[in-house]
Amino acid sequence: MTEHAALVHGDPIPTARVDTFLEAPLGGAASHDGPAPARRPNEAPSVARQRRRWATQVVVTDELARRACADRGLKPPPEVSPAKALSLAESDVADLGSIVAAALAHSPAARTLLAALEAEQTVPETAVRDYYARNHDRFLTPEALRRGVTPFGGVAPEDLLPYDEVRDGISCELRKAAGRKAFFGWLDQARAGVTYTHGHEHPGDPSHPDHEHRH
């Protein structure tokens, strides 16, 4: 096996980093192609190859995030032990894709970068009000819910939580969504400087026979 899994702007990412990630236990909600162990009993070779490619993406994302944090003068918190179980929430896997969800769970640098990107987002007041107006089902009062009120037949103002009470929560949610979008945009651009060794390509890369277009 080659000594490096990928090159990031010409710098090698050791295969040992991918192996270490693959050997870590998986805690919480397991994704369809979670990282541990590197080869499961009776696992098809093609599945094991895809698992390694998936893990390479997580490790490369961590490396890219480390570099982005250094460029921005951000200091991520200390890393946890590689032996600690990696916990993936089903909601994160659904919203982010398993690669990004695992990278954020695994990488302090990725979490630090995401937090910085979220903090940079500006949510206009008009966007917050528009969200409130378009999602009345989320802001029905407990009393309205007990009466079986639905937003589809018209909602009286008294059936809704006051805008001022929910505004900050809506703004936070929209800022979080915008931060995630910015993170995906950053990652797409950052990956342009990555060259993968054979056997470590993206799991969805159609140039290899085992590819699956899943994230």
Rank of each mutant, 00 (worst) to 15 (best):
P78F: 11
A94S: 15
F139I: 11
P77L: 09
V58R: 10
D62C: 13
R51S: 08
R138G: 02
A103L: 08
D71R: 07
G153P: 05
R147W: 00
R147T: 00
G148F: 00
L104Y: 05
D95I: 09
H106L: 07
L145M: 03
A116L: 03
G148E: 00
G153N: 14
P82F: 06
S107E: 05
K84V: 07
D92Y: 06
V58K: 10
A109P: 05
L74R: 01
R53H: 14
R129C: 01
V123G: 04
V100A: 11
A68R: 12
E143Y: 00
T112Y: 07
R67W: 06
F139D: 09
A109T: 05
L113V: 02
G97L: 12
V80N: 05
Q50W: 14
A119T: 02
V47K: 14
D137K: 11
T112A: 08
S87Q: 07
A94R: 15
S87T: 12
Y132K: 06
A55W: 14
L86C: 04
E143D: 03
L104S: 07
A103V: 04
L114I: 02
V93M: 11
A105D: 04
L74H: 04
W54F: 15
V93L: 09
V123N: 09
E120R: 10
L117Y: 02
P76H: 09
Q121S: 05
P77V: 08
A127P: 10
G154M: 12
E120K: 09
A109Y: 10
H106T: 10
A94F: 14
T141S: 06
L96P: 03
T122E: 14
R146K: 04
A119I: 07
A110G: 03
L74K: 03
A85L: 04
Y132G: 06
L117N: 01
V80G: 08
A119P: 03
L64D: 04
V59D: 13
P151F: 12
A115Q: 06
K75N: 04
H106A: 09
P76R: 09
A102H: 11
L104N: 03
Q50D: 12
R147D: 00
T141I: 04
T112F: 00
Y132R: 08
R49L: 15
G73C: 01
A133I: 06
D130Q: 13
L88K: 07
D71V: 05
S81A: 14
Y132H: 13
A89I: 08
D137G: 13
T150N: 01
A110S: 12
A116F: 00
L96S: 06
A48H: 09
N135L: 10
E120M: 05
G148D: 00
D95C: 07
V47T: 15
L140N: 03
A103E: 08
G73R: 01
N135H: 15
P108R: 13
V60D: 13
G148W: 00
S91T: 15
A68V: 02
P77K: 03
S87K: 11
L113C: 05
P108G: 13
L86H: 05
V59R: 12
R49G: 13
S81C: 10
A127F: 08
A83D: 13
L113A: 03
A109I: 04
G97F: 03
G148P: 00
D137R: 11
H136C: 06
